[in-house]
Amino acid sequence: MNLTAMAAIYRVEMMRFFRTLAQSFISPVISTSLYFVVFGTAIGTRIDQVEGVSYGAFIVPGLIMLTVMTQSLSNASFGIYFPKFIGTIFELLSAPVNFLEIVIGFVGAAATKALFIGLVILATSAFFVDIRIQHPFAMIAFLVLTCVSFSLFGFIIGIWAKNFEQLQLIPLLVVTPLVFLGGSFYSITMLPPVWQTISLFNPVMYLISGFRWAFFGLADVPVGISLLAIAGFTAICLGLVWWIFRTGWRIRS
């Protein structure tokens, strides 16, 4: 393993984050606060409790997941798209590093940023609602796994994308709807039966359900299945990345 190279990539990627630290910090805080005002206050006055949890607290895991997923995607996809776009990728391709080292450097940095923002949101939420975490280790595990798997996914999008529009396309068209429909702001048991069945095909639902279980001990699907889903997703992304580097798809002519 070329640890030095991995560290170098990681450091440079994190620098990009620190350069815009205020921005990276403030925007999730503001958007979280807005969600609490809109969802927590407006809807919360109508929906008192969901399965014994106050609505304000109930949406916290979903809110964190929503932000962490979109942040992972955008950080990781931009992180690898940018060198492709400005041409500096030549250096990565000519360096004595293998795909795993490149991926760990880029994805590790993207996941770190997302994790950091996720924790910021958790802290912000604590100002609005009373939060108790029943399974803190499981909570962290779910959070980290989500950051990593979505960063991997973002990395793939970044390599696939040929322009800035495509870079935005998948997150906007696929991921955001899946996240919103995945029970970020409600329990799927609140839906009509047909929609409950449809929700079972939404992979994001499993993540949110598992994450919420870590907070409150309640889940839409068994937590084991949630874990399996996220492990499976990670494995698929890893496989794709491995294939990309083996064939040089869209990075090496």
Partner: peptide
Amino acid sequence: HLEPFETVWRTVRYSRGLFGCK
């Protein structure tokens, strides 16, 4: 092809690291 926002020093140090040199 250069990362526009990096300083000269950092970008050169990065290259050294990328090639696995201490």
